[in-house]
């Protein structure tokens, strides 16, 4: 199939590993899915310390299960990316360790206290849900298939995130203040989650033409704001003055883009932002420390020990 035929046929779940697809498509899809898979792993890395720091057994169980789900999502997504024949999972995990692999802006920031949890577990996960729901109609069928399972589980994660937020928002004055502080700090990053406005996005046109992306950055951001601004207000969160957000009569929003720190965003996009670098290296060191195990089992015809409860199948 040449690229014109791909564009002509592009539609929901249109292509699968049985199709002879041009390299340009396979590379674009790999880049997108690898980014998504990496984000699952780095999100899990960021949240893991809070399994221990959860303030109740039930929260701890839910948190441990959530981190496990995310590793399962990573596993499932790397498989969907691998099926494009460009990179193996090992190559992608190596790239994540050596700083070449890219992932979501929000997972480059450190997370230091429990009041920050809803920023990731409610807002960022909620934003991811908006985006992922549209990817059920992406043209690479294994990716769309992964989304069915992932969206199902993410629904529980967002509910748990909201439950933690509700508890803080209705808790002591100190808890409410900590929540507002966290929101002030994270809100601009969350707005940037969807990337720059469409006219500044480099990869969008091609990805849209071949059906990998089904909605633009601005459309997704609008959908998110429509749903989550009212939720933030419901929990008595004060929306920071910046970035300025104009609400149009038709339910769409315009963001004053100059109010956002795009230098920081693009530094992050290059994996050069300082806390993020530490997180990438922290994970890389943890992976290196168990290199000996992977060496020891190399060539083992038993890739999964015993019965592995795959969260993603």
């Amino acid at each position: 199939m040449n690229i014109d035929e791909v564009k002509e046929r592009a539609g929901p779940r249109e292509f699968n590993p049985g199709d002879d697809l041009p390299e340009e498509y396979r590379k674009a899809a790999t880049r997108m899915i690898q980014f998504h898979a990496n984000s699952e792993i780095m999100g899990a890395y960021l949240e893991r310390p809070f399994i221990r720091q959860s303030p109740s057994i039930d929260r701890k169980l839910a948190f441990s299960a959530k981190v496990q789900d995310e590793i399962g999502h990573g596993q499932f997504l790397y498989r969907a990316a691998e099926s494009l024949g460009i990179k193996t999972r090992e190559e992608m995990l190596d790239e994540l360790a050596n700083g070449k692999g890219k992932f979501l802006n929000c997972f480059h920031y450190p997370m230091e206290n429990w009041a920050e949890i809803p920023m990731i577990a409610f807002f960022v996960d909620g934003a991811a849900m908006r985006r992922q729901a549209t990817l059920k109609r992406t043209s690479w069928e294994p990716y769309a298939h992964a989304m069915d399972k992932i969206c199902f589980e993410e629904g529980f994660h967002v509910k748990h995130g909201e439950s933690i937020m509700r508890e803080l928002a209705t808790g002591s004055k100190k808890e409410q203040e900590m929540l507002q502080d966290a929101f002030d700090e994270w809100w601009p990053r969350i707005i940037q989650f969807f990337g720059p406005s469409d006219d500044k996005s480099t990869h969008h046109d091609f990805a849209a033409e071949v059906g990998l992306k089904t909605m633009t950055n601005d459309e997704l951001r609008n959908a998110f704001l429509n749903q989550y601004l009212p939720k933030a207000r419901k929990y008595n969160l004060e929306i920071p003055d910046e970035p300025r957000i104009r609400e149009n009569d038709d339910g769409t929003f315009e963001i004053e883009e100059d109010d956002l720190d795009w230098d920081e965003f693009f530094t992050i996009a290059k994996n050069d932002y300082e806390p993020g670098v530490g997180q990438i290296e922290g994970r890389a060191n943890a992976q290196e420390a168990v290199e000996w195990v992977r060496d020891a089992i190399e060539g083992d015809d038993q890739p999964t020990a015993g019965h592995t409860p795959t969260a993603a199948d």
Binding site: I51, Q68, I71, R283, A286, V290, V293, R294, P303
Partner: peptide, 9 residues
């Protein structure tokens, strides 16, 4: 968690 040798383990 997020430190085991492989995603499966």
């Amino acid at each position: 968690q997020v430190r085991a040798p492989t995603l499966e383990s």
